[in-house]
Design a protein around this nucleic acid. Sequence first.
DNA 1: GCATATAATGCATTCGTATTCACTGATATA
DNA 2: TATATCAGTGAATACGAATGCATTATATGC
Lengths: 334, 334
Amino acid sequence: MPARGVTSLDVARLAGVSQSTVSRVFSAEDRVSEETRARVLAAAQNLGYQPNVLARSLTTQQSNIVGIVTHISNPFYPYIIEKLTRKLQEMGRQTLLFSVEPDQDVDEILPLVLQYRVDALIITSASLSSEMASQCERQGTPVVLFNRYVPGAKVSAVCCDNIEGGRLVANLLLDAGHKRLAHIAGRAPTSTNRDREKGFADRLRERGYGTWLRDESDHAYQSGREAAQRLFRRPDRPDAIFCVSDAVAFGAIDAARYDCGLRIPEDVSIVGFDDLPTAAWPAYSVTTIREPVNRMVDLTLELLVERIEHPQAEPVLELLPGQVVKRTSARLAI
Amino acid sequence: MPARGVTSLDVARLAGVSQSTVSRVFSAEDRVSEETRARVLAAAQNLGYQPNVLARSLTTQQSNIVGIVTHISNPFYPYIIEKLTRKLQEMGRQTLLFSVEPDQDVDEILPLVLQYRVDALIITSASLSSEMASQCERQGTPVVLFNRYVPGAKVSAVCCDNIEGGRLVANLLLDAGHKRLAHIAGRAPTSTNRDREKGFADRLRERGYGTWLRDESDHAYQSGREAAQRLFRRPDRPDAIFCVSDAVAFGAIDAARYDCGLRIPEDVSIVGFDDLPTAAWPAYSVTTIREPVNRMVDLTLELLVERIEHPQAEPVLELLPGQVVKRTSARLAI
DNA sequence: GCATATAATGCATTCGTATTCACTGATATA
DNA sequence: TATATCAGTGAATACGAATGCATTATATGC
């Protein structure tokens, strides 16, 4: 029976009170007599009234909406978004989701995001330019980068220590006595891709290891599988591959076993990065670097709330260590 | 330099025009002289002005926001949400994401969703009660169920024909001469779970097949693996299992190979449902029923737009056929 | 019994934008 | 030349809720 717009005024009329009073009942615990409150709630129930959050946000200058910009097809992210959304919901905030292509610039979509007056913004896909970062700052919209950072920019970020992670892998593979190393990198120019490769390369050089092979992927299974095929068909086939992510590692493992007839780990060792749930499945059993996702999610939300409440606070870069998870996809030192 | 709230009025003052004119420049192509338009845009650029979508939605009675209620941990859904979000974005609408536990009732969260005055609502997780459905209707919020339907309710739905899918699997397994069938069902009381099992069971009975084994899972890998273990440890071990989803099939395959030392498909056939990308990976190579996700997504959005534009239109139930995808996880008739 | 503090409520305004109506000046039509 | 038409613009108001201030009713203190 009630149409689209049941307003607080309708409820007020039915309950025989003013619109202000209805508002008081539904917003903060302002002083309203118990009797009035009951009458208002009954009237609201009766009409099926729900406060209009959008209208409320006009006066309160808070939307209770947090924007998340992401690229879901990398299977690492649905997992993260699930956690973020769940916890934001518990905090009484909702998630406005923006999807970008991995090669698409976040800058393009940012003006759109800002039109929604989100209270804060989490970016988990390709990074954003420093200009856009400062545009957000000027608008007073706090930004937290998840698993990315922009060196110069004044933006908070929560990140796995990808450089150290790359170094851990280099140690792991050299310690086990592998002779022909290779790296399948990520194509996108993100700090994550750069750092994993950099840590790996730095450590190899430090330990006096000569040259290694390199190929590229877009962080997904198929391109990882193709990159691995190219590597395996070389005359100087690698005996160990460090993959920029677990998804790529799955592709590399299938390429070895099913496309090239190689045994894992006897003929070739594969190491991934992320520790997706699938990495633990016995069909893959990927040795990998685990990102501390729970702590990363918690920290992200802490930083977010901190900056919503104290907008003038300085941006923070949190760097969390990854952890080696030894499984059976790589031959390791005893 | 510009603080949080740069409004159309600020732009108007700087450009030496009225607020109305600024509004005209930024909303529909209302008649504004080229010269004025340029001046306004310059001023807006200068101040970093972005129209406030929330305020706009107050007068237009359209939020351009579509709510999606989902349960992401089933890997079928991230994939869907990605597609939906992408296409909604192209239509100029954004996605407000709500996460629910698989056992959590959508009814609980619905009032919250309605407070955001979403233009429409897509529900991909557990179904909602008919009462809530009519509550949405009364509010004038069109609802489309994705891969679910509620028999009595006046709600549109786009669904794979799960009954027919179950029948297809029954035929497939009987035709190949399997003798001891089993079904790993989904625990949640959704139409999807019910229908897949019903189609399978109906067809088995029609063909005079006696009794079959049954176990349950929550649609995820781990519980599928455990259910399969229980089945394989029975004295009357099945020689074929129909799994309610691919994720469960992955678990069943690993249970067979790694937990129970069975060969696939020589010792046991596994059939899934959904055709996730992972089902095509050679490590699993799951014979399954493919849901026509692209058409389902397109249809969902068509129904959505249709009902946003014609709110009084009758709800529609679209039932799309699934398709058998033959891979190597099941022994099949030649 | 009167002044004062306090609780409960209403009135009026505000948030930022869209939109109706009225107005101006210019052009086209008779 | 007078009138109708129309493009371009501004003034005023509405959307739904929050809130500062004013008002009333009640309780407290003396």
